[in-house]
Amino acid sequence: MRNRIKELRKDRQWSQAVLADKLDVSRQTVNAIEGGRYDPSLPLAFKLARLFGRPIEDIFDD
């Protein structure tokens, strides 16, 4: 699944480690999601959506 997490993160000038910290996950997990190697669970997707202040469908695109 494609996503805009890297773009949204860079807009805020956050490193992967900073985003991981805000989401309470590992940096490796953020890296895997950004790279499209892992699709997050619904709770984590909602967490991302709330953090970036956007609807889920604005962040993820199948």
């Binding site: 590992s26 997990t29 895997a32 999601i33």
Partner: peptide, 8 residues
């Protein structure tokens, strides 16, 4: 205790 990606 680890997150969902690492758990997988």
């Amino acid at each position: 205790e680890i997150d969902e990606f690492l758990r997988l």
